[in-house]
């Protein structure tokens, strides 16, 4: 890959840059507790929560572990765990 002068790149390429490796806390959804309200998806600043059939799932390629989803989750279905454990 040749670098462009000035780091000029085409738009719409953020999916190419997996930023999930910045994460030091890992949110995990307990599907037995989750009431599918969808608030985690609404508040995620990285659009890293997706609805798959009825279930909400976290895309760890892009989740930076900010913890907003866990803070906002009313039924406390999301736990923040240390990354790598």
């Amino acid at each position: 890959m040749k670098l462009t002068k000035g780091a000029v790149v085409e738009g719409g390429t953020s999916l190419n840059y997996k930023t999930g490796n910045w994460r030091d806390q890992r949110p995990e959804i307990d599907q037995k507790v989750c009431n599918q309200c969808g608030k985690c998806k609404d508040v995620c600043p990285d659009d890293a929560v997706h609805r798959n059939n009825e279930l909400y799932e976290i895309d760890y390629d892009f989740c930076k572990g900010c913890g907003i989803c866990a803070y906002e989750c009313k039924p406390e279905a999301i736990k923040l765990l240390p990354e790598g454990k």
Binding site: T4, G6, A7, V8, V9, E10, G11, G12
Partner: peptide, 13 residues
């Protein structure tokens, strides 16, 4: 390269 809404690019990304 130059900024052009028809072909968006980003600088210093």
């Amino acid at each position: 390269h130059y900024l052009d809404p028809a072909a968006p690019k980003t600088w210093g990304s």
